[in-house]
């Protein structure tokens, strides 16, 4: 099938049929914020950061879950999109305790980077100051729920790549929380294979290798896509 031609921020670009708008935007060299998306995992369209304006469509669409079509005219960086993205990042910072100064991921964190990217210089909303537990019952990894953004990348990595579905989300709304097995200490999970893919997938310092301190957790989420590729190619 012939390539699709579309216009992104005024530039004509071509994409293979069936491609997602997000990859096309990135291939065109345009930076667009994402959080719940991770190459190699299925998409859920939950973080709403990659929403774009598509001419002729009433609603904003998530680039990660929109298929390109011929003649599509897309705007990725309008004033209102910039304003919405900033608000969304503010909401995230207000939701839990994202204190970069004392975080293992500082300097390697997607949330921290997002704040810089969308120009979020302060948070207008009231900080919710939650008090979530830190689970370090697992011999190799820990999870600090105070730093979780509920992107569910760990849940999907565990389910789709490792295939054990140790992680899921419990509760709902603002009380949602990622859990292992029956909401039990991670170290007592009977399904976890200790493969560490959840830790690789985590965009923030929520899931971390034990023994690292401030700024020491490397960011290695791109390895998830490599693992998927490896599985496909049977390296």
């Amino acid at each position: 099938m012939a390539a699709k031609t579309l216009t992104i921020d005024g530039h004509l670009v071509s994409a293979r049929p069936g491609a997602m708008l997000l990859e096309t935007i990135r291939e065109a060299g345009i930076t667009i914020p994402t959080l719940c998306h991770l190459d190699g995992l299925s998409d859920v369209g939950a973080c709403r950061l990659c929403l774009v304006e598509i001419e002729g469509q009433r609603r904003l669409q998530p680039a990660c879950m929109t298929t390109v079509s011929e003649g599509m005219v897309v705007h990725t960086n309008t004033p209102r999109l910039r304003s919405y993205r900033r608000q969304i990042v503010e909401l995230l910072f207000a939701e839990r305790n994202h204190v970069c100064a004392v975080c293992v991921a500082s300097g390697n964190c997607e949330l921290q980077r997002l704040a810089a990217l969308v120009g979020m210089d302060h948070v207008r909303y009231e900080y919710m100051s939650v008090a979530y537990p830190v689970d370090i019952s697992h011999p190799r990894f820990g999870i600090d729920h105070n730093r979780c953004v509920l992107c569910t990348r760990c849940v999907r990595a565990c389910d789709e790549i490792e295939g054990v579905h140790t992680w899921d989300v419990s509760g709902r709304g603002i009380d949602s929380r990622v859990i292992t097995d029956m909401n039990q200490p991670w170290g007592t999970s009977t399904t976890c294979t200790s493969c560490g893919k959840c830790q690789l997938a985590c965009p923030t310092g929520a899931i971390f290798p034990r023994g690292v301190t401030v700024g020491e957790r490397p960011h290695a989420s791109e390895r998830i896509a490599l693992i998927v590729e490896a599985r496909k190619q049977r390296w």
């Binding site: 859920v44 369209g45 939950a46 973080c47 709403r48 608000q87 969304i88 909401l91 995230l92 207000a94 939701e95 509920l150 989300v169 509760g171 709902r172 709304g173 603002i174 009380d175 949602s176």
Partner: peptide
Amino acid sequence: SCGKCIPCRV
């Protein structure tokens, strides 16, 4: 709110 997307959850 189901908690999936940020604008609604927070």
